[in-house]
Amino acid sequence: MKVLQCLIADDEPIARQIIENYTKEIPYLEVVKTCKNAFEVMSYLQSNTVDILFLDINMPKLSGISLLKTMQQKPHVIITTAYPEYAVEGFTLSVTDYLLKPFSLERFLQAVGKVMQTTSIQQDTVVIEQEKKITSVYVKSDKKIIKLDLDEINYIEAYGNYIKIYTEEMILTPITLSDFLEKLSSDFIRTHKSFVVNFNKLKMIDGNQIILQNNSKLPISKSYRKIVLDRIDKV
């Protein structure tokens, strides 16, 4: 499952923290940036992309609505606000959902679910075509560019802005785990915030550990356990 990168924009620290805490309950969400005002959002999006923008309306200097009007291309936008009167205008600007503070985790999940529905519809055809083709990837290591067959990879470990790819040997390459996961086939699943495993290499699950065919033992976190078990049920 694709991990959706999220940006939170709210001038209230408590509001930012609540949203960030909610995202931690959802394995396929990752907060990459929090912003205190619209200008920080604009600055970040000039050189970065995100999948979801959680956007407050009442922010200093430039409101969330005004920010949306300046954006020609925007991610999925979920408005989070205490002001119901902007709902109509928000939806005319093609926001995905409009959450009124204080909102529950259940309501938050509903809003994120709308994004997932849209994302799945957009990606289904592409994924079906690509799954037949993705058998290898190219990775940078030192001054080399190495072609790796996906079948060679046992698992991948996050290492800051790098990852460690474990085949018969370990390869260190400068890319984040989330970004590298997007290059892989659906045979690779996240089992922990810091680990992705080749599902075909799975030998057993023992408590809170995954054991691979080469007897490597990796953690499986509570938040990702259901995803792994659901995948096993489909085999």
Rank of each mutant, 00 (worst) to 15 (best):
K132H: 14
S63H: 08
E157Q: 14
N37P: 05
H76M: 02
D233A: 11
K147H: 06
T81A: 05
N154F: 15
P75E: 04
V228I: 14
F180E: 01
I210Y: 15
D187E: 11
T92Y: 05
I14V: 07
K114Q: 11
I52T: 04
S185T: 10
Q117P: 00
Q209C: 15
I220A: 10
M42Q: 13
V126E: 14
G160R: 07
I18S: 00
E157S: 12
A9F: 05
K144I: 01
L229Y: 12
N37C: 13
I14E: 02
I211K: 10
Q117T: 09
Y44I: 06
S194K: 10
T96R: 05
N200K: 15
Q72D: 13
E85D: 11
F180Y: 10
L67S: 09
V196N: 11
V115P: 01
A15M: 05
M1I: 05
I79R: 08
N21E: 04
H76W: 09
Q213F: 05
V137L: 11
P27N: 11
A82L: 08
K74W: 06
L184H: 07
Y28N: 14
V50Q: 01
D187P: 00
D142P: 00
L172G: 03
Q130C: 06
D97C: 03
K69S: 13
K2T: 02
L229F: 12
E30A: 09
K114P: 00
V112L: 06
I78G: 02
F54D: 00
Y138M: 06
P27W: 12
D151T: 11
I156L: 07
S223Y: 12
L177D: 01
S194A: 12
P60L: 03
S120N: 15
Q5A: 03
I145H: 09
P84I: 09
E169D: 09
V126D: 10
I156D: 01
S223N: 11
Y162F: 13
V139Y: 01
